[in-house]
Amino acid sequence: MSVYLIDYENIKSEGMNGIDELTKDDVVCLFYSENANTMTFRMHRKINDCRADFRFQDVGVGSKNALDFQLATYLGYVIAENDANEQTEQYYIVSKDKGYQSVCRFWSDRGYMVSMAADLTGTSAEDERESLLHSVESVIGDAETASKIVTIIQRYKTKQGINNALMRAFQSQDNKLSSEYYKAIKPFIKNKKGK
């Protein structure tokens, strides 16, 4: 059994990748706020069809990192609850916010399996970057260029933003190079917003 605590403000729908692979023994606690409280109909359907136990936590905002503190507190509550039931779980904090690493270390030092993940597959952000880097390098052919492109992909939320950043990073007289790179990476940015 795995317990996933999703920082929806930070990760949005990207963090829901892997929802189809969850089992009835898994628990997903989705933390959202007025800053991030929208979801596509497609994602609603996936949640409804999912066999995992979904819990939604509407968190109060008003101070910096309010959601983060509530998520960390809830993690402690769930760990205590599972200890009382003598259940051993793997806990994942689904976020790109590196501040959670200290929470993971705190619980890991006490013998609990708590780690950060990029999505519901349990893949770490580092593993996700490494996988993307390998994929981009296979179509670009140059490791240094691929690393720059992966940084751009991970930094921008929209296809237009990525395209603009590629044009700035790889300027040429006719922007032919940046256009070639954009075409090559299109399969890797399908989940980004835009056309």
Rank of each mutant, 00 (worst) to 15 (best):
N164G: 03
N175F: 06
E89F: 10
T88S: 12
Y32K: 01
L75I: 11
W107F: 04
E180Q: 04
K148F: 08
A146F: 13
F170V: 00
L75T: 14
E144S: 14
V103L: 02
Y156L: 08
K96N: 10
L133V: 09
N17E: 12
V27C: 07
K195P: 11
G122A: 11
E130W: 05
I185W: 00
F31N: 04
Y32R: 04
S63K: 15
S131Q: 13
V150I: 11
K24V: 13
Y4F: 15
D58Y: 12
N82A: 01
L75K: 03
E21C: 07
A165E: 10
Y112A: 07
I11F: 06
Q154N: 15
M39F: 06
Y32W: 09
K157I: 12
N65G: 10
Q173I: 04
V136Y: 09
F31R: 02
F106G: 04
M43N: 12
V114P: 14
A117W: 13
K190F: 09
L166M: 00
I79R: 01
N163Y: 10
I79E: 00
D127Q: 10
F188K: 02
N65C: 07
Y100G: 06
R168K: 01
F41M: 03
R105K: 11
Y92I: 14
T123I: 15
C50S: 14
G161T: 01
S95W: 11
C50W: 01
I11Y: 00
D127M: 08
F56H: 04
Q57A: 08
N37M: 01
T121D: 01
N48H: 06
D142R: 14
S63H: 13
A36L: 00
E137Y: 13
Y92R: 04
S33P: 12
K148N: 12
I47Q: 02
Y181F: 05
R129S: 14
F188D: 10
A184T: 03
V150H: 11
K186N: 08
E9Q: 02
E81I: 07
T121C: 09
V94S: 06
E128A: 15
M167Y: 04
L120V: 09
K157R: 04
S179Q: 01
T158Q: 03
K195E: 04
D68Q: 11
Y32P: 12
Q171R: 05
Y92V: 14
N191A: 06
E86C: 02
A66C: 11
T40Q: 00
V3W: 03
Q171H: 01
T145G: 01
K24C: 10
K98M: 08
M39K: 09
Y112E: 13
E180T: 02
P187Y: 03
V61K: 05
E21K: 13
N65I: 03
E14F: 10
V103A: 03
F106T: 12
Q101E: 14
N17M: 09
E14V: 12
K46A: 06
T145R: 02
A66F: 07
K157Q: 10
G15R: 05
N48S: 10
G194K: 04
I152V: 15
S135H: 13
Y8V: 07
T123Y: 00
D7P: 13
K24N: 15
D119T: 10
V139S: 05
L133D: 10
D68K: 11
G99N: 02
K190H: 05
F56T: 07
Y4W: 09
T145C: 04
G99Q: 00
V27Q: 09
K98Q: 05
F31K: 05
S147E: 15
Q70T: 12
